[in-house]
Design a protein around this nucleic acid. Sequence first.
RNA 1: GUAGAUAUGGCGAAAUUGGUAAACGCACUAGAUUCAGAUUCUAGUGGGAGUAUUCCCUUACAGGUUCAAGUCCUGCUAUCUACACCA
Length: 800
Amino acid sequence: MDFNSIEEKWQKIWEDEKVFVSTDFDKKPKFMGLIEFPYPSGVGLHMGHIKAYTSMEVISRMKRLQGYNVMFPIGWDAFGLPTENFAIKNNIAPRIATDNNIKNMKAQLKRVGFSFDWSREVDTTDDKFYHFTQWIFSKMYEKGLAYRSKAFVNYCPNCDVILSNEESQGGVCDRCSCQVVQKEKDVWFLKIREYANRLLLGLDNLDYPARVKEEQRHWIGKSSGAEVNFIVKVDNKEIDTLKIYTTRCDTLFGVTFMVIAPEHPLIEKYKDKIANIKDVEAYQIKTKQKSEFDRVQVNKDKSGVKLEGITAINPLNKKEVPIFIADYVMMGYGTGAIMAVPAHDNRDYDFAKMYNLPIVPVIEGGDVSKQANTDISDGKLINSDFLNGLSVKEAKEKMIKHLVELGIGCAKDNFQMKDWAFNRQRYWGEPFPIVYCDKCGTVLVPEKDLPVKLPAIENFKPSKNGESPLAQVEEWVNCECPKCHGKAKRETDTMPQWAGSSWYYLRYMDPNNAKEFANIENLKYWGPVDWYNGGMEHVTRHMIYSRFWNMFLYDLGLVPFEEPYKKRSMQGLVLGEDGNKMSKSLGNVVDPMDIIVKFGADVLRLYTLFMADYECSTPWSSVNINGCKRFLDRVERMQDFVDEFNGVHPEHIADLNVIIDKVTNDILSLKFNTAISSLMTFVNKIYQDKFISREEFRIFLTLLYPFAPHIAEEINEILGFKTYICKSKWIDKLQDDSVKNIAFPVQINGKMRGTIEIAENSEQDVVFEKIKKNDKFASYLITPVKKIIFVKNKIINIIV
RNA sequence: GUAGAUAUGGCGAAAUUGGUAAACGCACUAGAUUCAGAUUCUAGUGGGAGUAUUCCCUUACAGGUUCAAGUCCUGCUAUCUACACCA
């Protein structure tokens, strides 16, 4: 069979008949299946796309036949650095490069035969789309959730450009390999931290795999503890306080020194009072030169400088302790200051040993002369005044109460998650709807002037001095202030790649709306997304960002559901044939388009699902794929066995029921491999029997259709059926009144001794009588029977 | 370092969740078809013993619970993934 012409033929029929176009407000139950929309790269589709999309493809095809109004949308996540770099390298405008790539990948996706609803296609770089990305940002700005502030960023002094964490891995610049330093810069932040607790709690009611929830929880990183104000003593006068954060306020009596981050404002404040300010400043400079990467290395040696002239006083026991600065304390977490309890913390312990500071155990157990006792989730308090003898839990509660009474502290939750740095010094991204006016300050571009269009420019290389290329486009930068109509300048940074993808699924629900990002009625009908399949790599950033945007829009009453995705699943990787990740440098990349040329789209789809459990990472095999090719050939030749029988042969009812059951259930639990293997078993059976009726064949083809739709439709037509499978109904289980015999396993003393043929649902007595009469088992039953374990339809175990 | 996951034939993998381990596919062997090869069809295929009905062993390794363990528990080894000075 010529798969090329067949696949082309049916792809055209499906498109002409608009089989995959979903209608708003249809009375049928809705199902929205979402896949992570692709980045249109010059390389085109890779195996990962095929695997990621084929699952939702199979589910969508089945759900349509099951009577659902299925939306399976597709679009392009097209802003971002790779396109910009490609454009710079090949000297082609990013707009044109993007359009070319989209055109190419669209043709490829269609060639695989994916049942996407192309009428809802979105493109994040289309101004009709980013109009509303900007609009949502405006709302965040209005609600105080977007703010601009100074922050330290990775900066390459050689290239004169700001780098993202991804671009500065290992503390080295991606392009020139020189040492990255920290530079203070104006940064736009989104206050995602304000949503941290809701993002955490929301997880409880979502149908995400456990490891996804685990990773998101870890990313949010909630910890419960307390803030405590220590007294700061300068020039022997108690004139200030230092706020610290601790999860272990029960250990307050074990504090022997304090550590603050090198950037802590206390230093600047008492600059003149610090005797060794030169050493301190030298240390600060050293810290700045370290990249974030270096600074968070666990096993590096502890270092720090003692502040001479400033000390802290423990508000509980009034003991005076020294203050250090050290880069193991981060300004960005907690209060940027900690109380050090060296007896029970490894970092503090190392530090105390190095600077010869006292170590006071406050929880019993361990030997602090040798190492820190960190096994302190339980235990009794010691050396701790009014806490002595209490358990850790009791001590924490009592201490917090005490702190509140004295007015020197309170309970406080902290989150690992940082606010979202939201600007990039790049061309190929959404411009901010922000202008700066000398008179009015930061001004939002009014709604009527949106979108702020990204201008076409000549030179889109990042500029020296770390500014976006847009800064060079004077006629765009200089504008009128919307407030005072005086001279103003536009924000020249653009939004990061994660912006458009934070709300694209909402746009699918109403893709052509020019007035608003989506109509609330459409959102009520389609939302939330019923099932979202994607990669593990997007579980933290993309998924959390979009949950955050969705919650924000929900709070404004613009989206009728708080959580965007009801259910999440993930595909395993398709590895190279050598078992490594597919990569250009290893030369182990398999191009799906080559497979289609050789085997056709049906075989490609079938094999990617058959090769292993969907969630496992498995190597590609150019040999094993032949099995799927052979299977489809055998299906085709099964036509030779078609007889004149009208209806379903009674002897095939049970076999058909097995595949109906298997395929229907396995698809919904992502067990495509076993669904396909059951279809193979059925075909093998027909080859044994050498007969099959047309009706049986059609049932089989309907079940095959989600996996290999082209060949299923073709054979269906050849068999003379007038209705396309794509317009047919899914198959329900057949009525089966026959009494079945089963091979019933028999164990003697827990050892398998064979099987016995019995009627299904036979009771213990009947089975045992039959076993006694059977020669094979009789010899084992000479000794008296002690006990019989019988599980209906499962097993019998006779103990003698 | 911390957390999580995984470990089954020559290979990719199944196992109704404690009930016939290795379904299905690949590879391989034999036979048929063919001038021949490819394709296709049929049979076989975890290891060991035996002419054979059959018996013994086998799910990384060592123990345990149970009538029954790939599945549960304890220990141990290896691999993978994510996070990482989290105060």
